[in-house]
Simulated assay, not measured.
Amino acid sequence: MVCYLVILTKNLLVPKQVYFFAALLWTGIIAFFCLVQLNNVPLKEVSNLDKLVHVFFHFVLIVLCFLFFQKYTNAVNSVKCIITSFLFSVLFGIGIEIAQELFTTTRHADVYDVLANIFGAILGVAVIILFDLKTKIR
């Protein structure tokens, strides 16, 4: 499904500002949900739900950042866009964990959250590469 969303958004003549604001909005959503107190969430009993959310957050972040960087640079070679998106996602995830430890009293830094962020970023990169290969074959 995500591949089809990438196809649709990639083929539209969307100004690069749309991708920028989508990536910026998603970054803000991640920051909000990672820094606020979430003790009253009813799904707290689901095992490792927190890690799945981190994977999802960074998967989507990679796709949005990739689309922005590709549109912004008009890149024919998407390797630089993938690397830039990946580095942004990983550094942003580490920064959020540091902010949780330093600036909140209800949240704490977790190495496993960083690993989940990296896994989500790798998953996003894999989908982008597979999609890119699939479109070049056609």
Rank of each mutant, 00 (worst) to 15 (best):
M1L: 13
M1S: 09
C3N: 12
Y4H: 11
I7H: 12
L8Y: 11
L8E: 03
T9W: 08
T9Y: 05
K10I: 00
K10C: 01
K10T: 10
N11R: 10
L13N: 11
L13H: 14
V14Q: 13
P15S: 14
P15Q: 11
Q17C: 06
F21R: 07
L24Y: 01
L24V: 03
L24M: 07
W26T: 05
W26M: 03
I29F: 11
I30W: 05
I30H: 03
A31W: 02
F32H: 07
L35T: 02
V36M: 13
V36L: 14
Q37R: 09
L38E: 01
N40M: 10
N40G: 12
N40Y: 06
V41C: 08
P42S: 14
P42N: 10
E45M: 06
V46L: 12
V46G: 01
V46K: 07
N48H: 11
L49W: 00
D50M: 02
K51E: 09
K51T: 05
L52D: 02
V53S: 01
H54T: 07
V55H: 01
F57Q: 05
F57W: 08
L61F: 13
I62Q: 03
I62R: 03
F66Y: 08
F66H: 04
F68Y: 15
F68R: 02
F69M: 12
F69N: 05
F69Q: 03
K71R: 07
K71D: 08
A75D: 04
N77T: 12
S78R: 10
V79G: 01
I82E: 02
F86D: 07
F86W: 02
F88S: 10
V90D: 02
F92K: 07
F92W: 12
F92T: 04
F92I: 08
G95W: 08
G95R: 06
E97A: 01
E97H: 04
I98V: 14
I98Q: 10
A99M: 12
Q100P: 00
F103S: 03
T104P: 07
T105P: 05
T105E: 14
T105K: 15
T106A: 14
R107S: 09
A109V: 02
D110L: 04
Y112A: 15
Y112E: 11
D113W: 08
D113Q: 09
L115Y: 02
L115Q: 04
L115C: 07
N117W: 10
G120W: 06
A121V: 13
L123H: 06
G124L: 05
V125H: 00
A126M: 13
A126D: 01
I128Y: 04
I129E: 06
I129N: 04
I129R: 12
L130I: 15
F131A: 11
F131D: 08
F131V: 11
D132V: 06
D132Y: 04
L133Y: 10
L133I: 11
L133W: 08
K134W: 12
T135L: 13
T135I: 15
K136H: 13
K136I: 03
I137L: 15
I137V: 14
I137K: 15
